[in-house]
Structures are given as structure tokens and as C-alpha cells.
């Protein structure tokens, strides 16, 4: 596969153009499970503007992660089309990075070598690549741990390394699949602040799947509530609160309540909701 982006255009802190947005049109996906078909996603229409931070929230098993994997190109939809930056998604590409709940670092490599792997398919000398990796390690706050092996890192540090690796090819879009779901609350809060800082620094589009409503409200420009079985978009909530947000802010708390209400409405009532999109604007 030809690399989509070359290192030549990767002068640090220098973005070529506006970050790519994501257009999802009429996506449907089902899986075979014990001989029967499970409809994971039905008729998903979603536009994510370039440079936005968007969260997908919904009950577990509602297909949010599937949607992320479809955008990454790890799976193919049954119907519909996904475009990233105007280009149809057919396979994984370096314009899209992904961070999983399990950090997926290779245990036999150091932090530095793990991140270097993200640059393997790109042109450039070893020296240039090492410089990029050094910047990334500093960006995610892992300086001093370049030569640590994954089993020597805490869960939070592993996730920092995984974020650095996903950012290595300078993707236009970063897909985050419950990246902080397995972390303790203190570490999670800290990494939420960090990802916000990285998002501002990199100025790329971030799409995150999460169970944590507070996390979604804290980070997102837009929250997409996904209904379950089949997964459908139940509501889109634009969050206009200024970042960084204070979790005790009454507007923050009110918004959290609203998302919780929408989520409880999304619990089992099969087919009761036709896909009328509720769009709630939260103006300050």
C-alpha cells in the first residue's frame, strides 16, 4: 500500500490544510452470531466536521465500536459509504489513527520502538524518524521512559504510549475506542486533560467512543447518543461550553443530566424510537 502521507510534509506543528472531516452515509452492518444475524448498525448518517472532538455514547453493544472500526477500515460495511477528508474508506490508511482500550503495544519492543513502528511504512531516515518519536514522547509526557518495556508501564502510561504511536504517521483523524475505560478514575481524569491538550496541539479530528458521560461532556464539541440493537443515532448534542470545562459548572452538570436521560430512553424499548434526530443546543 502506498503511504498516503509523506514525512516531507511533516514539519512539526505545521498543518498542511484544514483537518479532514468524516462523512458517514447510510451505513449498515450486521454480524453472524451463533447462526443468527445481529444487526449492529442501521442507517447511520453522521457528519463530523474537520478538527472537531466528537464522542459516541450509548449502551454497551450498541455498535459504537463497530462504527469506529468501519471508519478505520478494519471492517467493511454491508451498505453505505464512509468518506474521510472526501476520500472513500476502503481499507486502513495512515490518514486515520486508532487507540484501543487495550493499549496493544507490542510487549517485545520498548516504548520508542513501538512508536517507531507507526512510521515503518513512511519514507525518511532512521534519524528523522527518531526525532519525530522523541517529539511524540515529549508530547504525551513519557520523556525518560523511551527504553521501558510495556510491562514496566502503568495502565495510564501505556495508553499515553499508544496515543503517541497512533499519532506517529500524523493522521488527519484519531479514533479512540474507550481509550481510558480500563483506567482508575484519577488517571482517567488526568488523561482526559492530556488528550484535550494533544487535540489542541495537533489540531486534528478526534472521534471517541466512551461509556463515561462525564468524559464525553468534558471533551466533546458534539456528543452523539447511539441507540442499541440495531445501533442508530438517537440524538446529537452540540456542546458549546468553553474548554477547558469545569466539571462543577452548573451548565456542565445540566448537560450531563440531559445525556443521561437520553441514554436511559435508549434502553431496551425495541423499535419505539423511529430515528427522529433530537438536536439539543446548549448555549451558554
Amino acid at each position: 500500500m502506498a503511504p498516503a502521507i509523506s514525512l516531507a510534509s511533516q514539519a512539526p506543528h505545521e498543518r498542511r490544510s484544514a483537518p479532514a472531516g468524516i462523512d458517514i452515509a447510510g451505513i449498515a452492518k450486521s454480524f453472524a452470531l451463533n447462526g443468527s444475524r445481529i444487526e449492529a448498525l442501521r442507517d447511520i448518517q453522521l457528519t463530523i466536521p474537520g478538527g472537531a472532538f466528537v464522542s459516541l455514547v450509548g449502551p454497551s453493544g450498541c455498535g459504537k465500536s463497530t462504527l469506529l472500526r468501519l471508519i478505520a477500515g478494519l471492517e467493511a460495511p454491508d451498505r453505505g459509504e464512509i468518506e474521510v477528508g472526501g476520500r472513500a474508506v476502503r481499507a486502513p490508511g495512515l490518514d486515520r489513527g486508532m487507540v484501543f482500550q487495550d493499549h496493544r503495544l507490542f510487549p517485545w519492543l520498548t516504548v520508542e520502538r513501538n512508536i517507531l513502528l507507526g512510521l515503518r511504512q513512511l519514507p525518511g531516515t532512521e534519524f528523522q524518524k527518531r526525532a519525530i518519536v522523541r517529539d511524540l514522547i515529549a508530547l504525551v509526557g513519557l520523556a525518560g521512559f523511551e527504553h521501558a518495556k510495556p510491562h514496566q508501564l502503568s495502565g495510564g502510561m501505556s495508553q499515553r504510549a499508544a496515543i503517541a504511536r497512533a499519532l506517529a504517521p500524523r493522521p488527519q483523524v484519531l479514533l479512540l475506542d474507550e481509550p481510558f475505560g480500563a483506567l482508575d478514575q484519577l488517571t482517567r481524569g488526568r488523561l482526559q486533560g492530556e488528550i484535550l491538550r494533544i487535540w489542541k496541539h495537533e489540531r486534528i479530528t478526534m472521534l471517541m467512543v466512551t461509556h463515561d458521560v462525564e468524559e464525553a461532556v468534558f471533551l466533546s464539541d458534539q456528543i452523539v447518543v447511539v441507540d442499541q440493537r440495531p445501533g442508530r443515532i438517537q440524538a446529537r448534542i452540540d456542546v458549546d461550553l468553553e474548554k477547558p470545562r469545569r466539571r462543577s459548572d452548573p451548565a456542565f452538570v445540566a448537560l450531563k443530566e440531559r445525556v443521561f436521560e437520553l441514554l436511559s430512553a435508549a434502553e431496551p424499548q425495541q423499535g419505539a424510537l423511529t430515528h427522529s434526530h433530537i438536536v439539543v443546543k446548549e448555549n451558554k
Partner: peptide, 27 residues
């Protein structure tokens, strides 16, 4: 599969997948 997916995301060729992921993981 989780490791092999990382290789797919970074556009590894089959040779790269074998030498950088499969053989070290199987070591």
C-alpha cells in the same frame, strides 16, 4: 488479532507483518 490489526492500521506489508508482528509474538 489485536496485534495484527495494529499492523493493518499502519499499512504493513505482509512481509512487514510477518517480521515485525507474527514472528516476535510467536517467539
Amino acid at each position: 488479532l489485536a496485534y495484527r490489526e495494529v499492523g493493518r492500521l499502519f499499512g504493513f506489508t505482509r512481509t512487514g507483518e510477518i517480521s515485525c508482528i507474527i514472528l516476535p509474538a510467536a517467539a
